[in-house]
Design a protein around this nucleic acid. Structure first.
Lengths: 338, 338
DNA sequence: CTTGGCACTCGGGAGTTATGAGTGCCAAGG
DNA sequence: CCTTGGCACTCATAACTCCCGAGTGCCAAG
């Protein structure tokens, strides 16, 4: 149905179009790449490719442009893995090596990805789901308030102020802290809600109202973070790439919506390998017209969150996929090591 | 030099231009506002205003547009305070009321400001400088690592992993924790470095290497946060406003640089009142062509950080100033209360 | 199946013109 | 001295036309 040369034609069309941003014609194609056939032959091939929906022409007297379907075929079968340059590998290492806390890792990862791919980078904070509770700390604040600090095995710190119904003495606080740590330390976050729910029975009735306030705060923290927050960066790249093609406005609006970002990363199919969503394949309405390259990353073997890049469908897929994969690996290493 | 009517003319030119985004001519001006003079008179006034550099015309046969100097005069002398609508006040309260930790307050403030002003919002995290140390927590991690958690009076939590030179027993950790809290709790952050530096003398020599590692981590946290991180949001508003006027690309690039953002907020003159920087007055090169409206906010009487909005010089200054001031007050209240 | 030839299409740039909003200036009137 | 109506002038913008050439599809021959 599509012989080797037609596939090769499609491949070069994609590559040329990505690099030049101009529809590619049969003539330009033959002499830029040393194909040993004539333009007429290429035209015939193009006609077939167009008939099958892999390419299209913006107007009658113009060259061809890949369709979403064309990019899809390109990504699935035609593009090899583009190895990263030494400089790029070095950049990844040095960029991420200096990070010293989770916020910093995420922030740097965003910048790094944006810089490597010249696209918008999207990084999700590791979900707490796969972590263990490391420590719970209660710190009295002014009035009847406590600061609840929850430290996870992945080194993340969650904090929250709690309004208490009754005043608490330091001893009571210490006791509650001891109970919490005895029950929770080392347990999986996913198990924590169940454990916490069973705690009130083990306390004296007088201490319960305050304890319940603290417990519900813990539960809220756990629930809220069930899916990690997503941050993005490199919007400036969008402005450059999306000269007039896609609605810059809409894309920016979408990116500023947490819900959208989570869907963008979350609905990707296989978590471990690199996933590419092209144009209309995109789950987010309003981001049709853009492509997303994502993958999972995690501290150990577990995938705890996802990251990726977003850009116009006219994107350097091999490059983006290589960068995303490499960055995800490095981030995973760093998280596992700390 | 400039009589009342000329000032009034300038005022209406600014207002009309801001709302319509089109150069305003003498004719349009007289019948939109019920001035009881003829267009010819207005033209004479305009000629004077232009001569003095308050307005300019894009091309010969077009209306007038305010210059930076014109906006400056408008802001300084011609614009009253535009009171916020009831809906806006309500929005501020409800939007910020639900916030439960510092990250959340900042995030919501950004969204709120961006939404109210339809500009890019810029919010700085409160600097630690004006806070007291509330509590220091040490949590053993895997290997010879500690997680250092520093909780401040303003409810902020700083965290950092520390690599220890030697192994530490739980008792040693507890002792170090006790020493730290005894020395630091309730002290100003600004005093902390001096205090920490004096601590090693009070420890047994054997414990010093580990302690020093922890101490230097504390110092680093304090130094790093000397000026708070700055986040922005509402970039989508830029795309809408800056149709073709300012280089969207450059502005986005500038916004993604922490250093630039800090300068943007930091070099504003008076901390307590609302500051307006118009066009070329802007300290950041590459953000000439945009205006910035900022003010300080803080937990108590102290200004601990700044916030504001950024947009094209063609901006609704009274509205932006009102929104910035109101939001800053509410945020201050919230921080003071928690 | 490939290739050269050839007529055809049509987007986009260059050149032209028409339009009208807006101006500056001037002389007359308050 | 300020205001006003009149008037000639400017010039960006839009609409229109023309033209070019890249690129195509088709066909007949190899």
């Amino acid at each position: 149905m599509l012989d080797d040369r037609k596939l090769e034609v499609l491949r070069t069309i994609v590559e040329d179009y990505v690099s030049t941003n101009e529809p590619v014609g049969s003539k330009a194609l033959v002499d830029r790449h040393s194909l040993d056939v004539s333009p007429a032959t290429i035209r015939n091939d193009m006609a077939i490719l167009e008939e099958q929906g892999y390419i299209t022409q913006p107007h009658t007297s113009a060259g061809r442009v890949p369709t979403d379907k064309g990019y899809r075929l390109f990504v699935d079968r035609l593009s090899g893995v583009k190895p990263l340059s030494v400089a790029e590998r070095r950049a990844i290492e040095t960029f991420l090596a200096g990070a010293y806390d989770l916020d910093d890792v995420v922030t740097r990862t965003v910048r790094l990805l944006a810089q490597l791919t010249r696209q918008v980078a999207v990084v999700q904070y590791p979900s707490l789901t796969r972590s263990a509770v490391r420590h719970v700390e209660l710190v009295p604040l002014a009035g009847r308030r406590l600061l609840l600090v929850l430290i996870t095995g992945s080194g993340h710190v969650e904090q929250r102020a709690v309004d208490l119904p009754d005043a608490m003495t330091d001893d009571e606080i210490a006791h509650l802290r001891a109970v919490l740590n005895a029950s929770l330390d080392g347990r999986w976050i996913t198990d924590a809600p169940r454990i916490v729910s069973s705690l009130p029975d083990r306390l004296e009735p007088a201490a319960r109202p305050n304890a319940v306030a603290v417990f519900s705060a813990i539960l809220e923290i756990l629930v809220e973070n069930h899916d990690g927050r997503v941050v993005f960066g490199g919007a400036a790249n969008l402005a450059a790439a999306a000269d007039l093609s896609i609605g810059l406005r809409e894309v920016l609006e979408a990116l500023e919506e947490q819900v959208v970002l989570i869907r963008l990363l979350g609905e990707a199919a296989e978590p471990a390998s690199v996933t590419v969503r092209i144009g209309a394949e995109n789950p987010v309405e309003g981001l049709r017209g853009t492509s997303v390259v994502t993958t999972g990353y995690g501290g150990g073997d577990q995938v705890v969150a996802r990251l990726g890049v977003l850009g116009p469908t006219r994107m350097d897929y091999p490059g983006a996929m290589a960068a995303v994969r490499a960055v995800a690996r490095y981030v995973s290493q760093i998280l596992a090591g700390s």
